[in-house]
Simulated assay, not measured.
Amino acid sequence: MKSPSKLLFTLLMVTSTCMVASSSNWLMMWMGLEINMLGYIPLMFMKENTSESEAAVKYLVPQSLGSTVFIASAIVSTYFNSLQILTLIALCLKLGIAPFHFWFPPVMASLQLLPAFILLTWQKIAPILAISSFSLLLVKTLMPIAMISALWGGIGGLNQTDIRSLLTYSSIGHTGWMLASINSNHMVLIAYLTTYILINTSIYTFLIKEYTKSYKQLFSSKEPMKFFVLAISILSLGGLPPLVGFVMKLLVLMFTEAKMMIIFGLIAGALISLFYYLSLTFSTLLSFNKMHLTKTFMTSKQAALFLLSQILPLTLILFSF
C-alpha cells in the first residue's frame, strides 16, 4: 500500500475514535465504530502476505458480528429496556475481552508489529469510551466479565514464550481492569488508558528493531542498558510496585464500586500476570552489572518515550485528583 493511502486510513481511524467519544446517540456511536474498523483493516497489510489476509478476515468477522448485535439490540431496547445488556456484550466482543476473546490471539499472532500494537492500544479506545457512556447501573453488570478477563489474561500467559503472545494476554487482563475503572471516577479510566498506551508505546520502540520472537532471544542482546529499560517497562505493565503500572491499579481499587469478590479476582489476575513477567525479566535483571550499565546508553527517542510512559501518568494523577 502506498504511503498516502496509509495516511488517509490512519486519519480515518483517528477521527472515527473522536466521533465515538463525542457521540450523543447510538447511531452515531455505531457509525464511528464501523468507520474505525474500516479504517484499521487496510493498515493490517504491511507485507501483503497470506497471514495478514487471514488476520484481516479473523478480525472482520467478529467485528461485523459485534456491530450487527450492537445496532440490533440498540433498536430493540427502545421497546424492551432489559435488552440493553446485549449492546454491552457486543462492545465486549469488539473489544476482545474474555470470554469473547477467541479472535484476539490468532489475529495478533498473524500481524506485523506496528498493526499489532495499534490493535493493542488505539483500537481499545473507541469501545471502552462507548461502554463508559452507558449508565453506571448497567455497567455494573459487566463486572463479572472484568474479573474473568483479568483472571484469563493472567492464566493464558503462563506458558507463553512468544513476547507478542505475552503482550496479547496482558492486554486481555488490562482490559478487565479498564472495565473495572469505568465503575469509578472517569478520570481513573482516562489515566489508566493513557498509562497503558504509553507503556505499550515505550515497549514498541524497543521491539521495533529486534527481529526476535522468543523472550530468551529478546533479552540476550549485547546492549544491556536497552533491555534493562525494556524489562522495567514490562514490569511496569505487569504492575510491580512502585512503578506507575502499580499506581494505576491502586487507583482503580481505591475508586471502584465493584464487589469484594470482583476485586479479589482482579488482584489475583494481576498477581498471576506479574508472576510471568517477573519470570521473564528476573534473570535478565540479575545478569546486569555496573560495568555493563555504564558502557551502554539509550537513544534519545527511546529515553524520552520511557520517561514519558513513567512520569506523565503520575502528573495526570496530581492534576486530576
Score class of each variant (00 low, 15 high):
Lys2Glu: 06
Phe9Lys: 00
Thr10Trp: 11
Leu11Phe: 09
Leu12Ser: 08
Thr17Ser: 00
Trp30Asp: 08
Glu34Asp: 11
Asn36Trp: 01
Leu38Gly: 00
Ile41Pro: 00
Ser51Val: 09
Ala55Ser: 02
Ala56Ile: 09
Lys58Tyr: 03
Gln63Tyr: 01
Ser73Thr: 13
Ile85Leu: 10
Leu86Arg: 07
Thr87Trp: 03
Leu91Asp: 05
Phe100His: 07
Phe104Leu: 06
Phe104Ser: 04
Pro105Asn: 04
Ser110Thr: 00
Leu120Cys: 04
Trp122Asn: 04
Ile125Met: 13
Ala126Met: 05
Leu129Asp: 00
Ala130Ser: 04
Ser132His: 05
Thr141Trp: 02
Ile145Arg: 04
Met147Lys: 07
Asn159Ala: 06
Gln160Asn: 12
Ser165Ile: 07
Trp177Leu: 00
Met178Trp: 06
Met178Leu: 13
Ala180Cys: 07
Ser184Thr: 13
Met187Leu: 14
Val188Gly: 09
Thr195Pro: 12
Leu198Pro: 11
Thr201His: 09
Thr201Lys: 12
Ile203Met: 02
Tyr204His: 01
Lys213Ala: 02
Gln217Asn: 14
Ser221His: 02
Glu223His: 03
Glu223Ser: 13
Pro224Phe: 10
Leu240Gln: 11
Phe246Trp: 12
Lys249Cys: 02
Tyr277Leu: 00
Ser279Glu: 15
Ser279His: 14
Thr299His: 13
Ala304Met: 14
Leu308Ser: 12
Ser309Glu: 15
Gln310Trp: 09
Leu314Met: 14
Leu316Val: 13
Phe319Gln: 15
Phe321Thr: 08
